[in-house]
């Protein structure tokens, strides 16, 4: 019963939500009871999901405390980093909940730029995230240098496409090949770059998307039919 009830719930919600996509919305004051029922389901399930999503924050916090708290207690590998994580989490949560330095009251924005939370975001989170992302440019440069080599035919094709895109996406690209006459304008780097992105890349992207969509349909069916039980947690003996 413990696993049967959640399975039935998942199946019922899944079937209802699939059906809502196919039942037309009634005009205000019109439509039959079934249409009204499915419109109600569609509208309110999203709001209920959002309410549940808020509780997920609590679960996330509990998980973070469990994992990193345990590591600090056991003095496990890299425990000082876990301690830093816990301290950062605690301080940020506290200043956010108490709205320190910002507009008070229930409706006061906890992330107001004058608040301590706002300042933590501007002075710590923002530059750290930006720095991490900026470092990627250096890794990409080094990786491109090592990876794009004419070792095989496929690698050569990849190299040619990469060069065209790299130069074609800069104003240099336009300037370099602007001299090509109109009959050969398709060879201009910016047009070649756009062609690569809009034709071969598009075909690949569509294939991947269709594959993923079929996978999602298959997985959803397995969930609704109760064949996929991982989502319900471990089976109890």
């Amino acid at each position: 019963m413990r696993s049967r009830a959640p399975q039935l719930l998942v199946a019922a919600v899944g079937i209802l939500l699939v059906l809502t996509a196919f039942v037309p919305r009634p005009a205000p004051g019109a439509g039959n009871a079934w249409q009204g029922f499915f419109a109600y389901i569609d509208e309110n399930f999203s709001v209920w999901f959002n309410i549940m999503a808020v509780f997920a924050f609590g679960l996330g916090a509990a998980s973070l405390l469990g994992v990193h708290g345990g590591r600090v207690r056991r003095r496990g590998r890299d425990w000082p980093y876990s301690l830093a994580t816990l301290l950062a989490f605690g301080v940020t949560l506290l200043v956010g909940l108490l709205k320190l330095g910002g507009p008070p009251g229930l409706t006061g924005d906890p992330a107001d730029s004058a608040s301590i939370l706002g300042r933590i975001f501007a002075a710590v989170v923002s530059p750290l995230q930006a720095s991490m992302f900026a470092l990627l440019a250096f890794f990409v440069a080094s990786a491109s240098y090592r990876a794009f080599r004419v070792r095989t035919r496929e690698a050569s094709a990849l190299l040619a496409a990469a060069l065209v895109i790299l130069i074609g996406r800069t104003p240099f690209g336009s300037a370099l090949t602007q001299w090509l006459p109109e009959p050969l304008a398709f060879l201009r780097l910016e047009r070649l770059s756009l062609w690569i992105v809009q034709v071969p890349n598009l075909a690949g992207q569509r294939a991947i998307m269709i594959g993923i969509a079929l996978g999602v349909v298959a997985m959803s069916l397995r969930l609704i039919l109760g064949l996929e039980r991982g989502v319900l947690g471990k089976e109890r003996p």
Binding site: A141, L163, I167
Partner: peptide, 10 residues
């Protein structure tokens, strides 16, 4: 400039 330099290294 960065793109051009990467192309040069490649």
């Amino acid at each position: 400039v960065a793109h051009s330099l990467i192309v040069l290294f490649i």
